[in-house]
Design a protein around this nucleic acid. Sequence first.
DNA 1: GCGACAG
DNA 2: ATCTTGTCGC
Length: 266
Amino acid sequence: MEMEGSSTSSSTFHLSSDDDHKKWLEIQGSLKRKLITEDDYNWKLRESEEEEESSGVQVLKYIGGFDISFSKHHPSVACGTLVVLDFKTLDVVYEDSSIVTIDVPYVPGFLAFREAPVFVQLLKKMQDSSHPFYPQLLMIDGNGTLHPRGFGSACHLGVLADLPTIGVGKNLHHVDGLTNSRVRELLEAEDNFNVYFVPLVGDSGNTLGAALHSSKGSFKPIFVSVGHRVSLASAVEVVKRTCKYRVPEPIRQADIRSRDYLRKHH
DNA sequence: GCGACAG
DNA sequence: ATCTTGTCGC
């Protein structure tokens, strides 16, 4: 028998309707109007660039990381963790976790809708208490502009928080003609010149992000893209400087601690 | 039609 | 995301 009408996106486990997708698309489009893809902050990356203590310019000191882990047997039970690290020492100076229920399904291209509620909750807690370690910049375990509509979770969360954000993916989101093999070729070519990151230019000609070999031990690259209020060049620099291992510390610590917290409290 | 598809 | 042990190497 035939299904009439247009609502035929019938995967058995597809919890969201076509209407939900339309709403999601509208929300992404709406939030994207506020997106800033250039450096827009009042601090600087390096301590000794200039001597301008009087101009209100500060140094980047508190950098946040956010991640979510899910329960093994209860897929809707999750733990969101927000950490803040000292940018210079990479010590964790703040940590907060929260067990939550997440029933929003994971749909490629709409990751932010799963993560936003916990993220906002954790960040608001710091904001409301005027916490001295409130992050100046956040790293998100997902893509920013490296996204089908140029608005991945790092952009989404960045706009919600009105904070500079950087997107970091461990796997390539195939978009705009970008493939793993293509990325591999680009990296291998550049590695010969002692450059370990390459811009990711899609078929459209746009630069969606960068692939980079973050630590010497890993052949597998990570994917950095602009989230909000940060240029790609700055994003890459920050990521490089926070990588003790393949995954930059803010995200790695958030990942480790969220999984840890979930194991203990569930 | 088939494969791909961040976390 | 999660399922999963050992193992090779510095």
